[in-house]
């Protein structure tokens, strides 16, 4: 079982999560993350085979809504807080497909 993360793994996970982390801070992250993983390792002391995973506190099913349009256009309000817009579009650096 893997309990410690090296700098390269931290960098890989950081990219997966799109988080820039300064290279000088990476060893610190690696140390703390390893400590956390080590801590949660305690779970492995328990045999959980056959135990149904619990994703929600309550064992009930999902409530559904009727197919009704309830929302109206509030673009101006929503785009007031946007970093960059033009002609009603959100602008981002060029997306290359």
């Amino acid at each position: 079982m893997l309990m410690s993360l090296d700098a390269e793994q931290v960098a890989r996970i950081a990219y997966l999560a799109r988080l820039q982390i300064d290279s000088e801070a990476i060893p610190d992250y690696a140390r703390n993350l390893s400590a956390i993983l080590d801590f949660v390792e305690q779970m492995n002391a328990v045999d959980t085979s056959g135990i149904e995973p619990m994703a929600h506190p309550q064992d009930v099913s999902q409530r559904l809504r009727d197919d009704v349009v309830t929302e109206s256009n509030q673009r101006d309000l929503f785009q007031q807080i946007a970093p960059a817009t033009e002609n009603g579009l959100y602008l981002v650096p060029k997306v290359i497909e």
Binding site: V10, I13, A14, L16, R18, L19, Q20, L33, L37
Partner: peptide, 21 residues
Amino acid sequence: CRSRGEGFGDEVKRRILVGTY
């Protein structure tokens, strides 16, 4: 990467990284 790197503090980043992992 930079928006998120600058916008979030260390503890938030740690938890995002643990969760991502």
